[in-house]
Every structure is written in structure tokens, then in C-alpha cells.
Amino acid sequence: MRIAKLGLIVLVLLSFSVSFANAQGTGEGLTIGFSQIGSESAWRTSFTEAVLAEAKERGINLLFSDAQQSQENQIAAIRAWLAQGDVDAIILAPVIATGWDDVLKEAADAGVPVVIVDRNVDSDPSLFVTRVSSDFVHEGRLAAAWLVQATSGDCKIVELYGTVGSAAAEDRHKGFMEVIALFSKMQVIHSETGNFVRTEGKAVMQSILSSEDPANICAVFAHNDDMAIGAVEAIKEAGLTPGKDILIVSVDAIPDVFDAMDAGTINATVELSPFMGGPAFDAVAAHLNGEKLPAWIPVAGKLYTSRAAYDADH
């Protein structure tokens, strides 16, 4: 009897603390597990840092686990959190799309909501709250829109494709093509893959510049900044002025690209926002408040044409 009473008091206190946390709408006081893929790129590291900083600012107790590219590690981390029973929610950046059904069901059974960030999972949407990720199609559209404006809708374009088959490359291509299709004089004359790598971006651009009359090329659209920086080198070697003779627009907004903008060699970049922690925490808080959330919360980066504009936003 006494135990039951005690249990009731604890329950009341617990629900009190949860409702207090949610009243803020920021997730303050929550304990959230965050399973990150790894630290394979500079972008991934800044993504992790942004989430950690956001959690600290909001007063969220974040349990961070770096999976080092292994799905097994991610599943093990989630199971450990569930077993301990001390997490209010889990944020998962999945390393691959498949194989999440079992562990997501376990989380659902334990009553722990899961928010997917960045890459997608192919599990049933009822198994997780929502997905927060970049809108690659939007990035492609934004880049195209800038280029259309800069050239008044008349431009022959070289497209430096990312890794074929990756969502980032395919969707940026799709968004870009959607917009330039509206203008009859916008035309992609070469589209070749540089695998998101600097050296390959340079090699592809070198080859295209040797086979095509450079006067025919008005702009380069690179699926990431690294390939754009490689292309700048190739354009310089061919005796042209990058950013002037050939306009360059890319995606990511890595620090190096702003050095290039200072030098006038790259014209514009669309930010691949690493700030997904905020929307993910918001989603967790809203879900715990009983709000209904859309299946996908896109995080859209802005387009920047100068370091000053970027700094003003960050």
C-alpha cells in the first residue's frame, strides 16, 4: 500500500516535471539520446557540434553516441538507452536507410519517441515521430534561381555532378533542372561526376575546358563546394577568370568557399545547414506536448554571395 502511494507520488512528480519541461516548448530538462553516424566529413563534425551547442543552450541533457559509420553501433546505443530507461526521446542520424524496423519498434514499445535527422530510413512512418533533414531539391532550385537572375535566363552551364545515386546529387540535379526548364535559353551542355571531390572536380573541368570552346561556357553549377574549388583551379589554368568569365555557383557553404568569394572566384553558394538540432529538439518537445507533426520537416539553407552576408546570419 505504502509502495503504491510512493509510486503515485513519483508518477505525479514525474508528469509534473515533464509538463514543466514541455511548457517551455524548448525541451528544457529533457534527456535525449543522439546517435550520430560518425565524423567522416568537416560538415558532419560541424553538424555534431551544432547539435551539442544547441542542447547546451536549451538545457537539454544530451547523451551523445558516435557510431563510427556502423549501424550495429547505432542499434546498440539505442538499445542501451532504452534498457536504461532514462531517455525521454531519441534523435537518430541513420548511417543507412534499411534495417531499422526492429529497434524502432522496441523504442515505440518503450514509449520513447524517435526523430530521424539527415539521411532517411525506409521503415514505416508510424515508427518515428518525424524526419528533419536538408531539402536538397530546394538547394538545387535556389542555385538555379540565382544563376537565372545573374544571366537574365541566358546561360550554357557545366554541371559538376556529385556521387551518382546519392540523394544529395540526384535531388540537387532535379531541383536545378526544374528551374532552368522554365527558361528556354538556360541549358546544361555538360554534366559529369566529380564524386564530391576537389581533385575530381578539377580533372572534369580541365577535360571539359580542353574539349569545349571556353567562350561557350557561361557558368558552372557544382553539387558541392569542393568540386567548385577544384573547378576554379582548372579555369585558372585554362587562362580564364573564374567568377567572371565563367560564373560559379555551388552548395554547402564550407569555410573555404568564402575565401574563394573574397577572391572573387566563386559567386554564390547555398548553405547545407548543419543546424538541424534546433528543429529536431522542437519536434521532440512538440510531440511530447501532444502536437501533430508533419512527416518531414525540411531545413532549408540560404544562398550567400559574400562572407559578410553569411557572417551576418551566424
Binding site: V164, G165, T193, I208, S210, S211
Partner: peptide, 16 residues
């Protein structure tokens, strides 16, 4: 072969 593919207008998906 690679440089030939770069200057061709083949879609990159066919390269490999």
C-alpha cells in the same frame, strides 16, 4: 577512357 568520358555528353550514371 576517363577523360574521354568527361568530354562526352554521356550522363554520368553510365560512366562505370
Amino acid at each position: 577512357l576517363l577523360v574521354g568520358l568527361y568530354v562526352s555528353s554521356l550522363h554520368p550514371t553510365t560512366n562505370l
